[in-house]
Amino acid sequence: MMEFINFYLIPGLVLGSIYALGAIGITLTFSILRFANFAHGETMLLGVYITYSLVQFSGVHPLIALPFGALLTVIVVLGIDRAFYKPFRNSPTIMVVIASFGMMLMVRSMVQFIWGVQLKGMTQGIQRPMIFFDSLRISPKHITIIGAAIVLMLAVHYLLSRTKIGKAMRAMSDSPELAKLTGIDTEKVVRMTWIVGGALATAAGVFLAIDTHIDTNMGFKMLLPMFAAAILGGIGRPFGAVAGGLVIGIVEEISSYPWIGVEPLLNPGYKAGVAFAIMIGMLLWRPSGLFKGKVF
């Protein structure tokens, strides 16, 4: 039992929190800008490398460098929107999706060009897990990641439910046409969407880097589970994205628990397939997701 919690459930929760943060950005972009942003994983990648450089440069803890890394990443993302997505604002969705695909390749190549393709570590050394009640083992970095993720999710909740710009984001997600007729500054809403998405993607990437390591394919590897989480929760439902992220993170991890006999139920190498299976299943049987999201 404790083995299940320590080695499957807690890592699942950590991975799920990371997916959840990334999926919020995907679901907001999907519902407000109305396109599936393939470059979201690469936003995460860029955020990780910028934060990594800040850590190398200043020697501070990654969590302290994170806000500055997120700020710089958001500036780049806003520049990308201005230069590459804004000209497509009134174009058919497919053109923007393809543009984001191109952006994904460009950003990744750029990162590989600047920082190289070798594996890197965000933090040095190995952490000794803390032990509670003699048997519950949690490593401090996992506590930090889950705690920080909760704080960020509460911040998003506050933004969307209490602030004028957050309500305008939800309004535009309901109906972009009516938002314009109402006089809502839709470009401002779009900018805010990139800011929230970019900052959360950076956070998710840095948490993943703290938990594991840094490599230039991490953004792309995260893309599928993040999309699966957004679809599972329902497009346009940030809380759905959080729930979807947690479900997918936990299911991926516990899928390799030896449920039957002593062998893992599913070879850990197939973890990514679990997210894919959930996504396909949802699209087939319940495309609106768990929380009644939009269906395009």
Binding site: K167, R170, A171, D174, S175, E177, L178, A179
Partner: peptide, 8 residues
């Protein structure tokens, strides 16, 4: 039609 924001 579509003259309100239904989820707000």
């Amino acid at each position: 039609t579509s003259n309100i924001f239904p989820s707000l």
